[in-house]
Measured scan of single mutants.
Amino acid sequence: NRLGIIYEIQGMKAVVLTSEGEFLIIRRRKDMKVGQQVSFENEDIYNV
């Protein structure tokens, strides 16, 4: 599992900021809110 803070939500995608200072786009889940810490898997990351 990886951890990140939700920075922005766009439709079915969420932008998270990881503890390494990396911004990633992941698959959104219904319970996500901006500012929330979430765990996610590598499979949830969109390749940009």
Score class of each variant (00 low, 15 high):
N1F: 09
N1L: 09
N1E: 12
R2S: 07
R2D: 03
R2G: 08
R2W: 12
L3M: 09
L3K: 09
L3Q: 06
L3I: 10
L3C: 05
L3H: 10
L3N: 13
G4L: 02
G4F: 03
G4D: 01
I5H: 06
I5K: 07
I5C: 08
I5N: 03
I5A: 05
I5Y: 07
I6T: 01
I6E: 00
I6F: 01
I6P: 00
Y7T: 10
Y7Q: 14
E8I: 05
E8D: 09
E8W: 09
I9A: 02
I9L: 08
I9V: 06
I9D: 00
Q10E: 15
Q10M: 13
G11P: 09
G11I: 04
G11T: 05
G11Q: 07
G11Y: 07
M12Q: 14
M12W: 14
M12G: 13
M12H: 13
M12P: 14
M12T: 11
K13H: 15
K13I: 07
A14W: 04
A14P: 00
V15H: 10
V15L: 12
V15S: 08
V15A: 04
V16S: 00
V16M: 03
L17A: 05
L17S: 03
L17K: 06
T18P: 00
T18R: 01
T18K: 01
T18W: 03
T18S: 09
T18F: 03
S19W: 04
S19C: 13
S19T: 14
S19R: 14
E20P: 02
E20C: 13
E20G: 06
G21D: 05
G21N: 07
G21L: 05
E22A: 11
E22R: 08
E22K: 08
E22S: 09
F23Y: 08
F23A: 06
F23H: 11
F23D: 01
F23V: 12
F23N: 02
L24Q: 05
L24R: 04
L24F: 12
L24K: 06
I25M: 08
I25T: 11
I25N: 03
I25Q: 11
I25H: 08
I26Y: 01
I26R: 01
I26W: 01
I26P: 00
I26G: 00
I26S: 00
R27F: 11
R27K: 12
R27Q: 08
R27A: 11
R28P: 07
R28T: 15
R28N: 09
R28E: 02
R28A: 07
R28M: 12
R29F: 07
R29G: 10
R29A: 11
R29C: 10
K30P: 09
K30Y: 06
K30V: 15
K30Q: 15
K30A: 15
D31H: 13
D31G: 14
M32H: 13
M32N: 02
M32A: 07
M32K: 02
K33I: 14
K33M: 14
K33L: 13
K33C: 11
K33Y: 15
V34C: 14
V34L: 13
G35N: 07
G35L: 05
G35H: 07
G35K: 03
Q36I: 06
Q36D: 10
Q36P: 00
Q36W: 07
Q37Y: 04
Q37N: 11
Q37T: 09
Q37E: 15
Q37P: 05
Q37F: 09
Q37C: 07
V38L: 08
V38H: 04
V38E: 01
V38W: 11
V38Y: 09
S39I: 05
S39K: 11
F40V: 09
F40N: 01
F40A: 03
F40P: 03
F40C: 02
F40D: 01
E41F: 11
E41R: 14
E41P: 06
E41L: 12
E43H: 08
E43L: 05
E43Y: 04
E43Q: 04
E43R: 07
D44E: 06
D44T: 02
D44G: 02
I45D: 04
I45E: 05
Y46L: 15
N47Y: 08
V48R: 02
V48T: 12
V48A: 08
